[in-house]
């Protein structure tokens, strides 16, 4: 029976490799019962999105200076 620690580990591993059928089942079952881990499942995916966004545009603040009128 997967607990949160094991489930979160599986969710992280799922970003790295395919989970086995048994792992998928165990994870799904846990998620049905655990709202905290459901939140985690969304958030761990969001982390990947943030990282990709960050690495493709490393300084979101960098463009502000160029838009001002009258800048020499």
């Amino acid at each position: 029976m997967k607990k949160c620690r094991g489930a979160t580990r599986l969710m992280s591993d799922a970003l790295e490799r395919p989970l086995t059928a048994a792992e998928k089942m165990a994870l799904r079952t846990h998620l049905l019962m655990c709202g905290s881990c459901r939140n985690f499942s969304r958030q761990v995916v969001a982390l990947r999105d943030f990282a990709r966004h960050f690495s493709r545009q490393p300084d979101a603040a960098g463009d502000t200076a160029s838009k001002a009128d009258g800048e020499d």
Partner: peptide, 22 residues
């Protein structure tokens, strides 16, 4: 193996808009 109470993940409000903030 359960989350400690104070560490349980709560929902994130609008993660999509966070990326627009410096």
């Amino acid at each position: 193996g359960h989350w400690n109470k104070e560490d349980r993940p709560n929902r994130w409000a609008e993660p999509d808009t966070a990326v627009k903030s410096e």
